[in-house]
Structure formats: structure tokens, C-alpha cells
Write a protein that binds this DNA or RNA. Structure first.
Lengths: 354, 354
DNA sequence: CTGAAAGCGCTAACAC
DNA sequence: GTGTTAGCGCTTTCAG
């Protein structure tokens, strides 16, 4: 009596095997105690009927879904792609699936995403929050005690662990090199829209990777009594053309910078394109460094000096941390991840002042 | 009477609002008909109690989950990352969530992934199947009528639509250029393990992007009475070092190739690294082309001539196709996507025979 | 080790 | 419009 137009259920398997539904469920679900005889009888019946477990029904019954929600701004971004791989691999080994939400860095979509995941009763959340004035949706997760771990970014005022990369030491080493090469005018380019006029006035930016990089650079410069000039920090670039415009403005004109810092590999591509079309030599005319170590960094001329970040580790660490939180370890240690400087060849002596 | 240690349910909201559960569900779920008065009363009660809809329960009841399962080999791979972005964006607009499974190209994990997704009762499947001898797990989906769309790869013998990129025309243009530049020995490097001794003996490879590229190249060469030599096709490279070894063997020795084709950007990076360390000039000593157009292709010296593929479109097209299938349009048109040649500068005159 | 029965939270027929 | 009632498929007491 195979069911006509509906899924095979545990009940079907039960009658086929001549056992109770409860016992069938135990055999199929691998819990409780069931005799060897019943076990094999049930499995045979299930196989014969083509039974497919319905984990949705199980979840509504148990209250757990064995899946975690992951929210990122842009899965296309190699940083997130690689993080998600680390997350996915780590969680799978622990028996969890990943429900992925891509927000396009839109705070509204992020709110929707969290709501949807919550509706699916995911057992935990892994979120790289988009830049927003406040985080009521995340706050709500926290107050209702749902396991939440942030990564790549932090949310000011939120008491949730966050896995971020420490760039201080690497940035200091970088700036040491740069300053010792005679540079004192440094430009920084990033894509990150902020309402604030200047980067260090914006409390939100401070909690983003870009903010941390900027602060680390500024701190390192301060040791030499140098400053990051406000007009040399371009954090609001929008798209390739805009990046190139910012770069152009920074390296040309009256008072050009002699070192250019790209906030990530995407920025670096546009920046290098612009420098090339401007016939600006690297590192002859301007030195360049990138906060990211893309696979091609060593292939261009000159090979790029970069601050390399442990990206995969960010993902695995965040996932592991979340597993701890879900297991009830509330006092989980947030792992320390550090970037490191890779000297290749795009930092050179500062061009003599004209 | 807020519930003690359990989720707020529709029942709680109902009593708080003084309406029946059914009516409350209708108001909250936005279906059926409910008066304005009741509607607002329910919403207020829900808000006040902090009600969170349980879409799992809904799914158990309705039989639909409003989510689709996506299975890829490696989310870290820019191709998949970008495809998934297209998929995710397209599906979200249609009201579907994405459950992502990363298999690491392991057929076993792929089987597990499909089973897990099926257990979650996803409404459809979007799969880039790993290379395997056969596809019983996918076949099972097909026979039980579950919406399934493949992308990037095909599964021999499976009657499921597949969204792949047509490289024939672009490859022909590329080979025209190459042959007219005087080349007749062409090497091809890829990472794809196959049991077959030679690429064109393996029926599985034919259905992968790599196989399509190889075939297109071979076909184009044939027009000139030229052949892809078996020993010049290296499809089994494993990891960066192995890729470099293959490249080394291809361009050196008695009878070197004069043109090197990289199957994707990852291969290209290692290949270019090896050529550089070998002091082989491009395109002076050997010409190079890549079946992929990474952002940095124009940055290296020389800028890379590539066959560019519509990656985002692959994702969106596959998602749209799946939406059609899920909507019951069984005779959906598989969209035609084509690659195109981007001439930049890595193809040059063949080195004179020594 | 086994089974009966109640319950998870929501939807859907059916009456009113 | 609204409420009643019976499910959806699985788990989980609680007896035995």
C-alpha cells in the first residue's frame, strides 16, 4: 500500500514493517532503544517504500533544526566566499547545515534575512553586519538568547562575540617600512559609505575592518609624529570609476601622496589600473600596499607588498565559536587572529620633493 | 500571560487578541480574509508578545518551504561565488531562501548534501554536480519529480535542464588568432581528476566545463588540420605545485608547446608564476590565454587574452529556470549563454623553431 | 524493548 | 468574516 500522491511517512513504514510508529521513528532516527530485529525490519521497509525523512517535522517537534544562518554582505567578495567555505566545512563536520543570506550590504535586507532565518528556527547565527545606525534586529537576537557570533565586523553596543582580524602589528611594520623609505604623505582608498565627513568622526566605521585598518595606520604614523590627512582618506568610493577618480586625485595635483594604501584587493585592481593609465610608476613614483593578499599579488609588476589576513581561519574560528555558544559554553574565548606583512616590492624610496 | 520558557505561538497571540487561532493565523500569515479590526488587534498582540513566526511548522503543514537547495563543489572558487550571488539575488526576489551546501567536489558529500536538502523539503535544487561515475542521487530527484536544474556542468544520462556556457565560438576565434600567429603546438592545463588516460576517452569529462573547452579547442584546431596532442593536455593537476610542474614540462624539454591555455584563473596564476620563475617571456617565448576573465587579467604584463564567461548570468539564468520549473512550466527554455574572446596581449608570434 | 497517546506550531476544510 | 476541528510528520512521555 504505497501512498498515492503524498510523501511516504513513518506511519507507512511502520505498517509495512509491522511495528508501531514510535518504534519505527526510533529505528529511523537512531535514538531510544530498538532491537536488532526491528531495526533491520524497519530499515528494509523504509528502503522498499522509498522513505525520505522529513527533518522539518522533526525540527518543529524537537525545537532544533541542525542548521545555522549565515548573513554576509556580498558572497561574491573573495573574503566572504572564503570565510563561508571555512564556516560551511566546520559546521558540516559538526552536523549543521548552512542557510546563506546575501544582503548586498543593505541594512533593510539584513533585517529581512535575520527574520527569515529566525523563522526557520536556525540554531545559531553567523553575521557580518552591514554598516547601520543601530542594530535592533541583532539586539533582539541577543536578548532572546539566541546563539550569535559576528565576524569581520563588530556591532557597537552589542554584547555578542565577534571574530575579527587584528591588523595593528602588521600595520605598524608596514608603516615602519613606508616611513623609513622617506614617505610622509599617505593616501588610503576604500569603498564604504559613511555619513560622516571624516572617517574618525564616525563611530560606526571604527567597528569595520576598514576602520580598524585606518586606525592602525594612523596609530603607527603617530609614532613618527605623522598624520593621515583627512583629504587623503577616501572611504566612500563607489564603483570602479569612482575608485579611479579618488586615486587620480590623490596622486596628482599640488600636493600628492607618495604612498597609496588600498583597503582590499578590489580597490587595488582599480587603483593599479588608474596608476598605469596615468603612467605613474610603482614604486618609482608612488608606493603601494594592499590590506589583502589575493592570489595574483605576486604576479603584477612590481609584486605587491600586502598585509595578509587569515581569511579561511576567520570563518572556521567564527563557526567554532558559534558551536561553543550553541553547546552552552557562554564564556567562550574569542580567538585572536592576526594579519601579517608580506614584503614584496611595491614599497620604494619616496620620490624627492619637487 | 507571556509563556514561560517556550516560544510565543499563534495560540498565545490569539488569546491575547481575543480571537480564534485560525483568524490569528490568517492575519499573521496574510491569507484568507480578515477584518481590519481583527487584523490590527492581532498585529498589536503579536508585537506586544514578541511573536516570531515559525516557518518550519508552516512548511510541515503546507508542504512547501520557500527555500531551494544549492550544491556547489567549492564556494571559494570565484565562479561559484559569483554564480551563487546571482542565484541568491534572483531567488530572494521571488521569495525563496538559499540553503547552501559545499561539497569540496566530493561525490559522497554531494550525496549527503542532496539527502539533507531533501530532508529539509526544499522546493527545488540547483546543483553543479561533482565528477562521478553515475548520479543515482540526482536520478532519484528526477524520478520523484522534484524540481532540479543543473549549472556549470551536466550529468550524462540525466533528463534535467542544465545551464552551461557555450565556448565554441570564442574558442574558435581564439584558435584562429593562435594559429595565425604561427602556433601549432598547444598545451592545456586544468585541475580535474579523471581515471581516463586521455581526456577524450572519458565520457564524464565531456560534460564538464573543462571538457567543453577542450572539445571546442580541438574542434577549432581540426579546421587547420592540427591536433591537441595527448601529452599536451594536462587535466589532472592537483594543487599549485603540480600545476607548475605540468607547465614546466609543457614549455621545456625537447618538444615544447608554444601556446599555453589555462582552464581557469586559478590555473593561470600558478602557470604565470612558473613561467616567470623559468624566465619564459610571454608572449615572446610562449603565448598564453585563459578561459576566465578575472579582475586582474588586465593588470599583469602582458595583459592576458582571455575567453570571458558570463558567470553572474549563469547563476541568475539557472535560478530563473528553476523558478519556472517550480511554477510548473515543464517545458522551460534553457537560456543560451556564450563566452566571448577578449584580446589583450598575451598571444604573440610563435617562437621560431630552433 | 515496545506501544499508545499526547503534543510541537501551523494550516485548511468546513460550517456558521 | 469567524470559529471549530482535523490534520501535517515527527518526537516524546509514560506505561508496561
Amino acid at each position: 500500500m504505497p501512498p498515492v500522491n503524498r510523501d511516504v511517512t513513518i506511519g507507512d513504514v511502520a505498517s509495512q514493517a509491522g511495528v508501531s510508529r514510535a518504534q519505527t521513528a526510533r529505528a529511523l532516527g537512531g535514538y531510544g532503544s530498538v532491537s536488532e530485529a526491528v531495526h533491520s525490519r524497519v530499515l528494509a521497509a523504509a528502503e522498499q517504500l522509498g522513505y525520505r525523512a522529513n527533518s522539518l517535522a522533526r525540527s518543529v517537534s524537537t525545537g532544533r533544526s541542525q542548521s545555522v544562518g549565515v548573513v554576509v554582505g556580498d558572497i561574491e567578495n573573495p573574503f566572504f566566499a572564503l570565510s563561508v567555505r571555512g564556516i560551511s566545512d566546520t559546521l558540516r563536520k559538526a552536523g549543521y547545515d548552512v542557510v546563506l543570506m546575501n544582503t548586498g550590504e543593505s541594512p533593510d535586507l539584513e533585517v529581512d534575512a535575520v527574520r527569515a532565518l529566525d523563522g526557520k528556527r536556525v540554531d545559531g547565527f553567523l553575521i557580518a553586519p552591514a554598516l547601520a545606525p543601530s542594530y535592533p534586529h541583532l539586539q533582539a537576537l541577543v536578548v532572546s538568547g539566541r546563539p550569535l557570533v559576528l565576524f569581520d565586523r563588530e556591532a557597537p553596543g552589542l554584547v555578542a562575540p565577534s571574530v575579527v582580524v587584528d591588523v595593528e602589528v602588521a600595520a605598524r611594520e608596514l608603516i615602519d617600512d613606508v616611513v623609513e623609505a622617506g614617505h610622509h604623505r599617505i593616501g588610503f582608498v576604500s569603498t564604504l559609505s559613511s555619513p560622516a565627513a571624516s572617517w574618525n568622526e564616525d563611530p560606526q566605521i571604527a567597528h569595520t575592518p576598514v576602520g580598524r585598518r585606518l586606525r592602525a595606520v594612523a596609530d603607527a604614523l603617530r609614532a613618527y609624529d605623522l598624520d593621515l590627512h583627512a583629504k587623503d582618506v577616501r572611504v566612500g568610493a563607489r564603483g570602479a570609476d569612482d575608485i579611479r577618480r579618488h586615486v587620480r586625485e590623490l596622486v596628482s595635483g599640488e600636493d600628492p601622496v607618495t604612498t597609496l594604501l588600498a583597503s582590499d584587493a578590489v580597490i587595488a585592481v582599480s587603483a593599479l589600473e588608474e596608476l598605469r593609465s596615468l603612467d605613474v610608476a610603482v614604486p618609482g613614483d608612488v608606493s603601494v600596499a594592499v590590506f589583502d593578499d589575493p592570489p595574483w599579488a605576486g604576479l603584477v609588476s612590481p609584486p605587491l607588498t600586502v598585509v595578509s589576513q587569515p581569511v579561511l581561519e576567520t570563518g572556521t574560528a567564527a563557526a567554532r565559536l558559534l558551536l561553543g555558544v550553541m553547546a552552552g559554553r557562554s564564556r567562550a574565548e574569542v580567538p585572536a587572529l592576526s594579519a601579517h606583512l608580506v614584503r614584496r616590492g611595491s614599497i620604494g624610496p619616496a620620490r624627492a620633493m619637487q
